[in-house]
Design a protein around this nucleic acid. Structure first.
Lengths: 188, 188
DNA sequence: ACTTATACGTCAGCTATATTGACATATTTC
DNA sequence: GAAATATGTCAATATAGCTGACGTATAAGT
C-alpha cells in the first residue's frame, strides 16, 4: 500500500456529514433531477449496450448507425455536427460499420466530394432492432404514466437541448397532433 | 487511400433512402424520444464538462464527487453499486479526488474495514457549483413549461430507471407535496 | 481459536472512445 | 488558376472503462 488510499491517520469518524443540509431555498440545486437524469440515461443506454455486444459494436457504432438510418443520405460533415465529435473519432467506427456491411457510402450526386451514408438492409435491421428495444422501455414507462406524460416528456427533452440545435432536432420529430393544451395563445 | 472508405465503386446514388418509411403503426419504435433523450443528455452533461476542465477532472470525477456529496459517509462498495463500475476503475479517479483534497476517507465506525467517503469543504463547493450549473438548465426548461411538467418529468425519469434501483433512487428524492392529480384513487 | 468471508487496495495489461495536430487528395467555387 | 471545401489518414495522447490475479485487514461463523 502506498499513496492516498491508506489505512492510517483517519480520525475515528462518524456517519455525520461534513456539510450541513439547509432547509433549501427556491434557488437550490435540483439534485433530484440531476440524479434521476443520470440513472435514467444509464439504464436507457444499457439496454442497447447488451444487444450491441453480439455484434462487437459499442455505443459509438450505435449512434452512427442510428443517425444514418434516420437520416439516410447523411453526409459526413452533417453526421459530425450531430455527434459533436471529430472526424478522426468517427473514422474508426464508421470504417468498421462500412466493412461489416451495416452502412454504405455513395458519392454525392451534386457534390462528388461528399460521401453520403445509407444503411444497408442488414444495417437497417439492426437499427430497428435497437430502436425497438429502447422503445420497449419507453412504452412501459408511458403505460405507467397518465396519457399527457408523453407529450410533456417530449417538451421537456426538447427544451433541454441547446438552442442552436433545437430546431434541427424538432424538424425530425413526427408532426404533432394539435391538442388542447395549457397555452394562452389558444385565443389568438 | 486504402481500405473501406474510398472513392471507387459506388453507384451514382440519389438522395433517396434505401429503407422506406411506412405510415407507422402503434408499435413502431419511438425514434423521436430516442433521439431527444440522446441530445438532451448530451447537452446536459456538456455544461458540467466545461467547468470540470478547469480542475483537470472528467465526468468520472464529477459522478464520484456528486454522489459523495449527496450521500456523505458512503462506503466504497455502495459507490461502486451506484456507478456500476469496477473498483479498479473507481480507484484511479477516487485517488485523484483524495489527493487533490476534494474528498476524504474515514475509517468506518462500526466496521473498520470500510472506508467512508466524505466531501471536504472544497469538494462540497465544487459539487454545489456543478449542481447549480446543471440546475440552471432545468430551471430554464421548467420556466418554459407548464407547472405540472416538473412533476411529470420526475415521474418519467424515475420510471425509466431499472426496477431494482428504482426504490433506492426514490429514497433520495425530496418528499413530494401531496398534490391534486389525475389519479383515480382520489375518491378512496 | 481457526477458518472463511468481506471490504478494500493494487499491479498489469487491454479496449473503446475520444482528443489535437499535421498533412494528403479530390472536387467545387471564385 | 487559386482558394475553399469535404473527406481521409497518420501519429501521439487522454480518459474511462474492463478482466484477472493477488495482497491485507477486519469481521463473522463454527
Amino acid at each position: 500500500m502506498k499513496a492516498s488510499i491508506e489505512r492510517k491517520p483517519l480520525r475515528p469518524a462518524s456517519t455525520q456529514a461534513l456539510v450541513g443540509r439547509e432547509p433549501a431555498p427556491e434557488s437550490e440545486p435540483m439534485f433530484d433531477l440531476i440524479e434521476l437524469f443520470f440513472f435514467a440515461y444509464r439504464d436507457f443506454v444499457g439496454d442497447a449496450d447488451r444487444l450491441l455486444e453480439n455484434y462487437q459494436f459499442g455505443r459509438a457504432h450505435h449512434r452512427v448507425l442510428h443517425f444514418v438510418y434516420r437520416r439516410p443520405g447523411l453526409a459526413i460533415a452533417a453526421l459530425l455536427d450531430i455527434l459533436k465529435i471529430t472526424k478522426q473519432s468517427l473514422n474508426r467506427v464508421l470504417k468498421q460499420l462500412l466493412d461489416a456491411g451495416f452502412v454504405e457510402a455513395r458519392e454525392g450526386a451534386t457534390d462528388r466530394r461528399q460521401r453520403l451514408l445509407f444503411p444497408t438492409a442488414k444495417g437497417a435491421r439492426l437499427a430497428q432492432e435497437l430502436a425497438t428495444l429502447q422503445s420497449e422501455r419507453f412504452r412501459r414507462v408511458f403505460g405507467e404514466l397518465p396519457p399527457e406524460a408523453r407529450e410533456t416528456t417530449v417538451d421537456f427533452l426538447l427544451a433541454m437541448v441547446n438552442a442552436p440545435d433545437r430546431e434541427k432536432v424538432r424538424a425530425h420529430l413526427p408532426p404533432r397532433r394539435r391538442r388542447r393544451q395549457h397555452t394562452e395563445d389558444d385565443a389568438a
